[in-house]
Nucleic acid binder design. Structure first.
Length: 765
RNA sequence: GCACCCUUAGCUCAGCUGGUUAGAGCACUUCAUUUACACUGAAGGGGUCGUAGGUUCGAAUCCUACAGGGUGCACCA
């Protein structure tokens, strides 16, 4: 034993220690091989450029398991293609993640006993808040980058891009201007989703629906009784609508009826609208255009007949009645009450006055909630910037994206997600890209003459009538970062929905990172693969296709690979409130990144959720050590070799051993094929199975008999040693994309090798 | 309401364009122990592939219906 240690690295006498992962990563990074420009060009026809733009993690906290899946899957492809000799680019990034980050930051403020409003109150508060969030984000960003390194991502850090880099913002502004000039983006006042907690509008995708049980009140409006949940909005009613063919109300249509109400005797008009379902409730519905999307639509269809929105709830979700009922004490008693409280009191008061016929206490309906905080969203009529996806935009933005997937230019893996993609794209609505938050890219617009920016234009009861373009509001609009010439320009205060900027990511990053010597767009666009979770197919992928094609005329990526979401051991969604969140960095600490990566890859098929089991990680940690010990045995035997053989391969290997060499090449081919067809689970499992149960369990045991048997010939032994050594190297190559650290750690200690790093070894023999 | 996915061993999941006795990991049972490796090895038990039909020489795989679980989209007060 003592003799052996002279020839072999002493490290092998101990179990594999994954704490060396960090050092290995530093060596890789220093080598410069993550950067495609530094890879030695190989005259290989098998290797067209391979590129992935990393989905930029939100720079507002630590990585979660989903990020680990992302890194594991993408690194497999990147390392594989790099070893195949492809010019390989994996471009990392970080997302400022506007709304999400501001929410995280506000939670932090809350914990500190303050809020964003406290900061905004101060002079220059907006800037102060922005700077605080910026500092917070940048700190998290570098923290997060360290974590991406710990997971072993072989990405080109020299090209790292942040969504707020000036060059990115330039591209975003350019796109916005082009959209504006092409008439594909417009400002309109319409009813939108408003979160009373976060004080911003949200796009339709950011609304979460939840089934609730609420009382349904049957309210007497003179001769008509109608059913409503939102009793408190009655002060904003401007009509009652019935179905045009409803015999019960036929005679009343077009007439004004007198109504005994809390506000005293009032008159209200009856209108006919196809939208009303005669079977629901009493077949009559109150129309409150300011606080209900459907009612707003009804008003749109009856603008000449009835009054428009009367806003009686303010931006904080409190009753705001003074504009219409300042002199009416019966109504003003509700002033300032929160919606739920107002509803309760109004119900009580109306019941007392006999204005409520009956109450259905068990009414089930869906309520729209803020996807982040679960607050009930209040529909509000506000001017916002929209991307047109239904008129011209449908032709110019939506249809090309649908066609690209339909004709196979873009492939989605798994294929069934294409159906989901089509379904959404074919029913798409215009996209509200305005957010009333500070953390984001300002919308580069200036206004003059007329209604100005948010929220200064807002005076209760003063609703711009426009239903179309800002032009109709009598405004002058200027699109640009800098204030235009002349007096009276007011700057837009809204910022872009974060997905508007990240929706341009592949194009914008490659453009931003290009140099006079390297036009990355030319070299790597369209990118090879966009790999991300299926949960952001609409948020992100669909928009990248639309905007990417709009900006460049080319698809942004050829393949979309959508990984499943990781759930806990019991298939439950991970969430902080459930306390079942797995911290990937803790797992890395305990078992090593290789083990975590394998556990996340094996048994994880695209588009299908997987559950996380620590026992599995432990199993692959054991595998790391198995591989380590295989190396130990092989090197130990190799060190015993006395002959410094100059013989060729053909002469050294016995016929049986040549078969073993053929066999591992077949296995490698199978692994390669599976990687290329995006079956990473299969690929990893095949490699794992071969190394443990064929190489270790069968071949080593077989060779052990030869090597430890005095009676065997030296030729046999020499072939055995050589074949084990070759199989070890080939196994390391085959496993490297999956388990980069342990394989590199062993490679580093090999006495004879072709390269300085396994990372840049040739995959082919 | 519309759409999509899932249902295979005790658990978590693979099984690609239909083709010999249905696989893996974990768990379980028995055995081995101065072994390259206990972060080990050997052997083994365990499945009428959700249900009912159909197509086929042949179905876990394709088709239809149904049931259960999940997700997305839409949404009527």
């Amino acid at each position: 034993m003592l003799l052996v240690t002279i020839f072999m690295n002493e490290d092998f006498l101990k179990p594999y220690d994954h704490s060396q992962e960090k050092d290995i990563y530093s060596l890789w990074e220093k080598s410069g091989f993550f950067n495609p420009e530094n890879l030695a060009p190989r005259p290989s026809p098998l290797a067209p450029p391979f590129s992935i733009i990393m989905p930029p993690p939100n720079a507002n906290g630590s990585l979660h398991v989903g990020h680990a899946v992302m890194v594991a899957v993408e690194d497999v492809m990147v390392r594989y293609w790099r070893m195949r000799g492809a010019p390989t680019l994996w471009l990392p990034g970080a997302d400022h993640a506007g709304f999400e980050t501001q929410v995280v930051f506000e939670k932090k403020l809350e914990k500190e006993g303050t809020s964003r409003f406290e900061i905004l109150k101060q002079e220059g508060g907006r800037e102060e808040l922005y700077n605080q969030i910026k500092a917070f984000t940048l700190a998290n960003k570098s923290h997060m980058e360290q974590q991406v390194r710990q997971l072993g991502a072989s990405c080109d850090w020299s090209k790292e891009t942040f969504t707020l880099d000036p060059k990115i913002i330039d591209t975003v502004y350019e796109t916005f201007k082009k959209l504006y000039d092409d008439g594909l983006v417009y400002r309109d006042t319409r009813i939108v989703n408003w979160c009373t907690k976060h004080q911003t509008t949200l796009s339709d995708l950011e609304v979460k629906y939840e089934e609730r049980i609420d009382p349904l009140y049957y309210v007497k409006y003179g001769p008509i009784t109608l059913a409503t949940v939102r009793l408190e909005t009655k002060f904003g009613d401007t009509a009652i609508a019935v179905h045009p063919n409803d015999a019960r109300y036929k005679d009343l249509i077009g007439k004004e009826i007198e109504v005994e109400a809390i506000a005293g005797k009032t008159k209200i008009k009856i209108i006919a609208d196809e939208h009303v379902d005669p079977a629901f409730g009493t077949g009559a519905v109150k129309v409150t255009p300011a606080h209900d999307a459907d009612d707003y639509a009804i008003w749109q269809r009856h603008r000449d007949e009835i009054e428009g929105p009367k806003e009686i709830i303010d931006q904080f979700g409190r009753m705001s009645l003074a504009s219409y009922f300042a002199d009416n004490a019966d109504v003003m008693k509700y002033q300032g009450l929160k919606i739920a409280e107002a509803r309760k009191q109004i119900a009580h008061d109306m019941q007392e006055r006999g204005l409520i016929e009956k109450v259905d206490a068990e009414y089930k309906h869906n309520v729209a909630l803020c996807y982040k905080c679960g607050t009930v969203l209040e529909p509000r009529v506000l001017p916002q910037w929209f991307i047109d996806l239904t008129k011209e935009g449908n032709k110019k933005l939506v249809q090309p994206a649908i066609d690209a997937v339909k004709n196979g230019s873009i492939k989605i893996v798994p294929e069934f997600q294409e159906k989901i993609f089509f379904h959404w794209m074919e029913n798409i609505r215009d996209w509200n890209i305005s957010r009333q938050i500070v953390w984001g890219i300002p919308i580069p617009v200036w206004y003059r003459n007329g209604i100005s920016n948010f929220p200064a234009y807002r005076q209760a009861g003063n609703f711009p009538i426009s239903n179309n373009r800002e032009k109709n509001m009598g405004q002058e609009v200027y699109i640009g970062k800098e204030k235009p010439e002349g007096e009276g320009w007011i700057q837009e205060t809204d910022v872009f929905d974060t997905w508007f900027s990240s929706g341009q990511w592949p194009t914008a990053t490659l453009r931003a990172q290009s140099t006079p010597e390297h036009d990355l767009l030319k070299e790597f666009y369209p990118t090879s693969v966009m790999e991300t979770g299926y949960d952001i197919l609409f948020f992100w992928v669909a928009r990248m296709i639309m905007l990417g094609m709009y900006m460049t005329g080319k698809i942004p990526f050829k393949t979309v690979y959508l990984h499943g979401l990781v759930r806990d051991k019991d298939k439950q969604k991970m969430s902080k409130s459930k306390g079942n969140v797995v911290d990937p960095m803790g797992i890395v600490e305990q078992y090593g990144a290789d083990a975590l990566r394998m556990a996340l890859l094996v048994g994880n098929s695209p588009g299908q959720d997987a559950s996380f089991d620590e026992a599995k990680v432990k199993g692959y940690r054991n595998f790391s050590n198995k591989l380590w010990n295989i190396a130990r045995f092989v090197l130990e035997q190799n060190a015993k070799s006395k002959v410094k053989s100059q013989k060729s391969k053909d002469e050294i290997f016995t016929e049986a051993d040549k078969e073993h060499l053929k066999r591992i090449q077949e296995v490698k081919k199978e692994v390669a094929g599976n990687i290329e067809r995006y079956r990473f689970s299969q690929a990893a499992e095949i490699a794992y199975h071969y190394v443990w149960h064929e190489f270790a369990d069968i071949l080593i045991e077989e060779k052990k008999k030869i090597l430890l048997d005095e009676a065997q010939s030296e030729e046999e032994k020499e072939s055995a040693r050589a074949v084990l050594y070759t199989l070890l190297i080939e196994s390391l190559k085959m496993l490297h994309p999956f388990m980069p650290f342990v394989t590199e750690a062993i490679y580093k200690r090999l006495p004879h090798k072709n390269m300085e790093f396994l990372m840049v070894e040739k995959w082919e023999e």
